[in-house]
Each structure stands twice: as C-alpha cells, then as structure tokens.
Amino acid sequence: MSELPVPYRVIGRRDETPDTVTLRIEPAGEALGPFAPGQFAMVYAFGRGEIPVSVSALLPGGHLAHTVRRVGAVSQGLCAARPGSILGLRGPYGTGWDLGQALGQDVLVVAGGIGLAPLRPLIHAALADRKAYGRISVLIGARTPDDLIFKTESLLWPTAYTGVTVDRPDRGWTGEEGLVTRLIDRARFDPAGTTAYLCGPEPMIGATARELVHRGVPAARVRVSLERNMRCATGHCGHCQLGPLLLCRDGAVVGWDQAEPLMAVREL
C-alpha cells in the first residue's frame, strides 16, 4: 500500500434508511483524480480504519457522495459523521461499470438493497446522455420498504421503466412483492442489444444474471459488482482474491462470463 488518505470535508448528510447514510463530501485540500461510475474510494474514519465505498454520486466541483450502511466499526464511524467532519479518502480504485459498453444499447440496471448506491452515478450518467442509449430501465429490490434508498429521487428518474419490489412488505406497502427478478418481465428491452448492470447480495446477482442470460443477454454484457474483504485496494494485500481475480484491480465490476464459474465454487 502506498497511497495516503487525503482530507475530504462532509458538507451534507442524509439518512436514507434507519441504518444507511449518504454523505456529500468535498476536498478539504487537493482533490483525488476523477472517479468513474462504479469506482470506489477507501474511506477512512479517524482512528477506526478504512473501508471500500463506491461513489454514489459524482457532483460538480469534485464533490462526491458516498452511501454507507452501518455494519461494522468503520461504517459506524462514517455514519456518525456530520457536516464539518473530516474523512480521509484514497482512490479512485477499481474497474467501474464501463457505461461505454452500452452505447447504442438498451440499459438495464438491477439493484438489491444498498447495491443501488454504486449504480446511481451510472444511472445519472446514462440519463444525462439520454440519446446515446436505447431504453433505460431500473429494477430495484429491497428487504422491506424501510430499506429502500433514494426513494424520492428514483421516482423522478426519466427512465423507460423504474420498478420497485420488496421481500417483506409492511402494512402501507401497495407496490410489488418478491424478488427483483420478478420485475424483469415489466421492463422492455431487447435482450441481444442490452447491457445490464447488477449490484446487490451475491444470491440476487446470481439469480438475476442467470435469468438475463437465459433471456438472451450476452453474459459479457451482464456487468456485476462483487465484494470481498479489502485492506489496501492497490493489489498488494491479497484479501480481495476471487480465484484469478484481485477484485480491487480486476473488479469490483466484472462480466458475468468471468464471474459465473467463480461464483459457482463454494467458499471461493
């Protein structure tokens, strides 16, 4: 590991769900190099440590958004940040979604839970250059209505279709129920001319990718984001191995053609 964290100041904070927070940050000094949608930063909470967090928005002036779920000591520290708090950032790291692959094609985005966060800058980028793509559809799944992030914003996305489903509805829920794969039928896309972007829990990614390939989307055009332990993000610590891949370097976004045989091996 060689890169040092640079200070970023929290300038905005929003609770997305009871355990998930979006922080808007700006460079407190020099900015890091430009991030592409799907790339991540190693985000440092003072004295607690670093975790890899994908950018959840690329904003003017080198501002970034990171959406963090409280699951461990570092993410708790990040979720406790308030406007004015200083975080440390290294990056950008990883392969990114590679929206260029989808030029002239239908774009299908499938997110599970907080998996929508890394996909958001991709959706923003595709919608900002609407004519470069065919139909843009976004399928969102979450465990409960309370676990949905970017609720208001996602309603306003001018996509061809945005669908939301939850596994466990509460009493007020009138929308779809069940796995996110249920929504695939609702979206209109030409499988052979579609690039799909998937992020969420591994079982959700696997089920969705298999369904899309079954419908005729080429496996290499199903781009999936994978997760492993990560300490350095620079290819030196060995933690993020998934078979032949170092996910910090060769991922975290890879084609399903590469991911499928690896995900088929238990405990790889």
């Binding site: 040092l4 964290p5 640079v6 200070p7 004295g47 200083i86 975080l87």
Partner: peptide, 11 residues
C-alpha cells in the same frame, strides 16, 4: 494521522 482542534486531518 493527527486530528486538530477544528477536526482537521493531517496525514
């Protein structure tokens, strides 16, 4: 890393 009185981070 040092945290200054104003929260500033020096690495």
């Amino acid at each position: 890393a040092e945290r200054g009185p104003d929260g500033a981070l020096t690495v």
